[in-house]
C-alpha cells in the first residue's frame, strides 16, 4: 500500500513495574502501521500483549519506549494531540457493556460526542447515526441501559464509541461471551461501519474463523512482539508455527488439510465454511454452490 498510515507505532515498548521484582515486558519493539480503510484482525494467545498494545494506540497507556503516531503526529507531543487522538482512535474495551452509566441509552451514546464539545443537533445526528451502525433500534434509545440484555448492552456500548466517528475503530474481543447469533450480528454491524465510512478497524479476537473472514490483514502477537503479519492465506498456511504459539487455524482449514493428507487434492486455503464448500465442489467438477 502506498498510502500513508493513519496510525503507526515505532519501536513501541512497554514494561510494567519497571524496577520492582514484578517487572514484566508486556510489549517489545512493536512496529505496526494501520492504513485508512483497512480491517486488521489482531490475534494472539492470552498474555501476548494485545490489550497493552491497543491501549497505547489511543494514548491510554504511555509507552516506556518508542512512540505512537496518529496521522503522523506523536500522541504524547501535547495534551491537545492526546485528547484528539482519543476521538480519532475509538477504543471499545472487552465486555464494554459494564461501562454504561447513563439513565437512557440515548444519553449514554451521546457521552462521547458531548465530550468532543459538540452540542444540540450535531450530537443528535451522531447518536442516531451510531445507533444505526451498531444495530440499536430507535425505540431502544429511550430505555435505561440497565434494562437491556447482554447483547443489546454491548451494541449500545459499541455505538457509544462509533458516535465519535473514529477514523480507527479498535475493538477488544467484541465477540466474547456472545451466542453464535449475537456474534454474527455484531460482526455484521462492525463490517457495515467499516465499509460505509471507510474507517480502519482493528479487531482483537480469539476466533480465528472471525479473523479470517473479515480481515484484510492478520497480525499475530506472541510474547509481546509481532510474530506474523499478512493476509489470512499467508498466516494460516503456517499452521505449525501458529500452533507453537498456542494458536489454532480455523476448523474448516484443518478439515481441508486432513483431506489433503488423505490424498484428496483440495486447496486448503479456505477459512470459512462457505469457501471450504466451494473448494470441495470445485474439486468435484462443480462450478457454483448456489
Amino acid at each position: 500500500m502506498s498510502q500513508t498510515p493513519i496510525l503507526k507505532t515505532e519501536g513501541l515498548t512497554h514494561t510494567y513495574g519497571a524496577g520492582t521484582p514484578f517487572e514484566t515486558v508486556a510489549i517489545h519493539d512493536v512496529d505496526l502501521s494501520v492504513y485508512p480503510g483497512e480491517f486488521i484482525g489482531l490475534v494472539g494467545h492470552t498474555g501476548s500483549g494485545k490489550s497493552t498494545l491497543i491501549q497505547h494506540l489511543n494514548g491510554l497507556v504511555k509507552p516506556t519506549g518508542g512512540r505512537v503516531l496518529v496521522g503522523g503526529e506523536d500522541l504524547q507531543s501535547s495534551k491537545e494531540t492526546l485528547r484528539n487522538a482519543r476521538f480519532r482512535v475509538g477504543l471499545v474495551f472487552q465486555y464494554p457493556e459494564y461501562q454504561l452509566f447513563e439513565e437512557t441509552v440515548y444519553k449514554d451514546i451521546a457521552f462521547g460526542p458531548k465530550n468532543m464539545g459538540l452540542v444540540g443537533e450535531d450530537v443528535d445526528r451522531r447518536v442516531h447515526e451510531a445507533a444505526g451502525f451498531a444495530g440499536v433500534p430507535e425505540e431502544m434509545l429511550d430505555k435505561s441501559p440497565f434494562d437491556l440484555s447482554g447483547g443489546e448492552k454491548r451494541r449500545v456500548a459499541i455505538a457509544g464509541v462509533i458516535a465519535m466517528r473514529p477514523e480507527v475503530l479498535i475493538l477488544d474481543e467484541p465477540l466474547a461471551g456472545l451466542d453464535p447469533k449475537g456474534c454474527e450480528d455484531i460482526l455484521a454491524h462492525i463490517q457495515e461501519y467499516h465499509t460505509s465510512t471507510g474507517a480502519a478497524v482493528i479487531m482483537v479476537t480469539h476466533s480465528m474463523e472471525a479473523a479470517a473472514r473479515v480481515s484484510d490483514r492478520i497480525v499475530v502477537m506472541h510474547k509481546g512482539t509481532v510474530a506474523m503479519e499478512g493476509t489470512s492465506k499467508e498466516v494460516f498456511s503456517r499452521g505449525e508455527a501458529l500452533r507453537a504459539m498456542g494458536l489454532e487455524i480455523p476448523a474448516v482449514t484443518k478439515v481441508l488439510l486432513r483431506l489433503r493428507e488423505l490424498g484428496v487434492d483440495v486447496d486448503p486455503a479456505a477459512f470459512t465454511v462457505e469457501d471450504a464448500a466451494k473448494a470441495i465442489v470445485r474439486l468435484k467438477g462443480g462450478h457454483n454452490l448456489c
Binding site: L60, G90, L91
Partner: peptide
Amino acid sequence: KIMSAQKARGAD
C-alpha cells in the same frame, strides 16, 4: 478498567 473505558470516550 472503567476509568480507561470512559477516558477512551473522552471523559476528563
